[in-house]
Design a protein around this nucleic acid. Structure first.
Lengths: 93, 93
DNA sequence: TCGATAATTAGATAATTATCTAAATATTGA
DNA sequence: TCAATATTTAGATAATTATCTAATTATCGA
């Protein structure tokens, strides 16, 4: 919901690549980590930042935790950007 | 042009407020600084980051340097976001 | 219940970013 | 040309963020 967290989350290439991977299909934390040259705790941290920004959802399925994309916040960010072209004032804080 | 710089630039509340101020009209560096409880060098640094991301243009007019909004990059960012709803794969790096 | 697997949390460190004060540069107008 | 004004650059420090290893938690299946 807070636009600030969304922009922060989106401002890192690793996190954007995670989002890109999730466009294809839902993935477990481990599957996501396989795509990166980085430890699992680091990826876990990035996933947490994406989760806090509500850009992804997580759901435990047995031993695994499955991550999926939440497109709602993308729309919120787009609305914010559209406001710059035409819209009325918004509280950018 | 690089989406990474655009997101980085947008991920700071001070910089988003600067962009918001520039929606009304072009402003000099000093006029921008007046709106913040922060030194001029700090604002100058934020302006530089916005400039590198091409979110603003600057033009010297006599003693002043006038900053203005560049909406092109906003559109690039929106295109990137739209891709997540419907689009084909992009290189999110 | 216990060993194996998946993932996160804790704690430390390195890298990046934001901010400040002081100094430098550019321009104007007398 | 020189003093005043506007802005940036330099250099230092504090705050934040990214990353690692080691330890912890949760779940499964025998």
């Amino acid at each position: 919901m807070p636009i600030n967290q969304a922009f922060k989350a989106l401002s890192d290439p690793t996190r954007r690549k995670i989002l890109d991977l999730l466009r294809d299909r839902d993935l477990t934390a481990g599957e996501i980590a396989e795509h990166f040259d980085m430890t699992k705790p680091s990826i876990s941290n990035h996933l947490n930042i994406l989760k806090q920004a509500e850009l992804v959802w997580d759901e435990r399925k047995g031993q695994h935790i499955v991550y999926s994309l939440n497109t709602t916040v993308f729309q919120d960010v787009m609305k914010w950007l559209l406001n710059f072209q035409s819209g009325e004032r918004n509280e950018s804080k």
